[in-house]
Each structure stands twice: as structure tokens, then as C-alpha cells.
Amino acid sequence: MSDAPPMLALDGISQRFVKRLDVAARIANLLGAKLKDEVVHAVDRVDLAVRQGEVVGLVGESGCGKSTLGRIAAGILAPSEGRRRWRGKTVAEMPAAEARAVELKVQMIFQDPFASLNPRLRVEDIVGEAPAVHGIVAGGERDAYVAELLRRVGLDPGFRRRYPHQFSGGQRARVGIARALAVKPEFLVCDEAVAALDVSIQAQVLNLFMDLRADLGLTYLFISHDLGVVEHLSDRVAIMYLGRFVEIAPAEEIFARPNHPYTAALLAGIPRLDARKRRFEPVKGEIPSPLNPPPGCHFHPRCPHAIPRCRVEAPALKAIAPGHWSACHLNDGK
């Protein structure tokens, strides 16, 4: 790794969501019921460093903590534990003005093209509000600035007086991207940003992301459940299972030589255009509830290679090749 500190680093991030007992449950406890607060470990001691200009893909199944990690990376959510560093400096310890500047440098693109735009604002306000508030453009230049941004994301600037509902899903996604670009970010967290779009529209938006990367030198954390999309876009891929990273490696490497049994199962299970009349060989078992995850390796109830040790001891992420990290006990024997 080079000497320059990574652009954005997450160190030992954990996020616990606690659902406190309500009054009725507390009264029941007084009477002898042994109810406890429900604790979800949405993210469990995750480390991630993203270098300038890189695209890191984050893959995992529903509820594994992708969005939570993404929101922590974007600074919308404060983690229960861990540090978030921007170019080496801990954001929580920065003076307010500097922290705010970092907040603007990291922007988020959301999944739902309906819920992510305020239905009562015109596109020009959705896109132009933040740069005006933060003094990025002067009042008189706002119109031109918004028009330029809309053109940048492939929308006709003539649309700027429209409301979100007057757009199709793909156009709304573009408006959301323009809104993020308006504050001149350097880092985009895309949370399932194309999941809600039709295949042909999804391709357009993915192309837009690639153009923006080439033109503006943006860095991405690209969250998706779609391995094909992640494979296409990312330089490095992190696979997440129940709050923990199980494998992280350069994209070519992970798709060619998956190490972790879960990654291997995921790759074997995805339908592919060139696999005809195949017999689907599924990973068995269900995704466990994050409320009480299995002890040891979270994946052991579904893992075809599980050994007794897996039930008691959680495997740590270990380097198995340069830049290739995996958390599986099987690697110890090698």
C-alpha cells in the first residue's frame, strides 16, 4: 500500500441498534419475566480503507448491514464504535467547519428513486438548494449552475422547473446524482443506486457513473446485491455477511478465485446469461436473523465445509494473497 493515507478510512466500526423494552415489557420483567433489550449488531468491527480514485464494491444479502455501513461512511449515521478518518484525520475530532466540509465531500446516492427526492420541491431547488446554502454558487449564477449539472447527468435543463413525479425512474435517479454532484463531492456512496431501475435504464445510469469517474475523478463505495453490477464497476470488492466482512479482494481476483465458502456459494448461485438450462445448486439454509446470529463463524449453519471449530470461534480476516483477505478457518491449515 502507498504511504499516502487512504481517502476515507473506517476503523473498527460497529453499529448496534438497541430496541429498548417498552413499559409493558418492563412491568413484565418486574413480575419475573426475563425480557431483554433487543440488540442488532448491524455492523460488527469492520475496517475499510478506500483509496483516492478507487471503486470499492460492497456485496451482501438483505439485512447484512450494507446500508448501515454506507450511511456511516457517508457521515449520516454516527457509529456506536470506531473511527471515521478522512485523508488520515479523524472526522469526529475536526473543528466544525472542517467537519462540515468533509461532510460535503462525501455524498450519498440512494436506492429509491421515489423516496429520495422531496416531492414538493422543483428540480431546480432539489439540485440548487445546497450549493446556494453553502455559498458554492452566488445567487445570480444558480440557474446556470443547475442547468450545467442537469446537462452533466444527461437531463434536459428545460426540465428544471418540474417536480419529481413528472420524471421516470431513470430520470429521477439522474436528478439524485445531480443533487449530490452540486456540492462538488470527491466521494460517492451509492446504496443500491440502480437496483430499482429497469435493465436498459440501469445500463444508462451505470454508464453515467463510469463517465463521472473518468471526468471528475470520483471515488466510490458502490453497494449492491447484484454481483454482475459490482463486478462490472469495481476495482475491489468486499463481501459482507451478517455485519462482518468475510472477504475482500481485487475484483478480478475475487471473481476468479473466491476463497471464502460464502463468496464461492454466491458466485455459483447467481444466474448468468450464458449458463443455459443449468441445474441451480443453491446454498442451503436461510439467512439467520441478525438478532441472534449463530456463534463462531456466522456462516457455519450453511457452510458445506464447516468444522467443529467454526461453531465456537469467529475467524478473523487474514491476508491470503497480496490484497486478498478472507475470514475462514480453512485458511489456517494451508
Partner: peptide, 26 residues
């Protein structure tokens, strides 16, 4: 809980602006 409120927070807009301009009208 909707994403447009999160987006507004991500854009570092002030609290009162989020409440009165984004939350209230909806």
C-alpha cells in the same frame, strides 16, 4: 425516515431548514 430527509442531512443543510422546508410540507 424517507431518503430525501437523509439526503438533506447528507448535504449538511441546517436542522430548521430540513424541518420547515423538507419535512413540514410533506
Amino acid at each position: 425516515r424517507k431518503e430525501y430527509i437523509e439526503a438533506a442531512r447528507c448535504l449538511a443543510l441546517g436542522k430548521s431548514r430540513i424541518v420547515f422546508r423538507h419535512l413540514l410540507p410533506n
